[in-house]
């Protein structure tokens, strides 16, 4: 197994191949896809991509944490975190592709 790391560049290259727009425009469109998703999440919306997965924003309440190195207690302020739940299709394809 190769274990590469893909980046935006690989995604725009794929868009370039598939759709036949310029490399530059393909890159800008990939960026907009990510931006539109980020903006929706920042507004507190769920982003639900069928057969891919669901991104949702959850609010966490304040709690006391501990610095594991010093043992000192530190307050952790309330914050919003993003969770991703993969679709069944994604789970199945990832499991099948990495089997054996």
């Amino acid at each position: 197994m190769a274990n590469k790391t893909l980046t935006r560049m690989d995604l725009s290259e794929a868009v370039f191949r598939e759709v036949g727009l310029s490399r530059n425009e393909s890159a800008q469109l990939v960026e907009r896809v990510l931006d539109l998703m980020s903006d929706a999440l920042v507004r507190g919306e769920q982003v639900k991509i069928s057969s891919f997965g669901t991104f949702s924003v959850r609010s966490k309440t304040a709690r006391m944490g501990r610095n594991p190195k010093t043992g000192q207690e530190v307050p952790i302020s309330p914050r919003r975190v993003l969770t991703f739940r993969p679709s069944h299709l994604m789970k199945d394809r990832v499991a099948a592709g990495n089997r054996g």
């Binding site: 893909l6 935006r8 794929a14 868009v15 990939v30 394809r93 990495n98």
Partner: peptide, 21 residues
């Protein structure tokens, strides 16, 4: 365009690769 973005991410992970955005 939109479908390609998501399809590429799934294909990469199915091949055991990482996608860092």
């Amino acid at each position: 365009i939109v479908n390609t973005v998501f399809e590429e991410i799934i294909e990469a992970m199915a091949a055991g690769d990482r996608v860092e955005l």
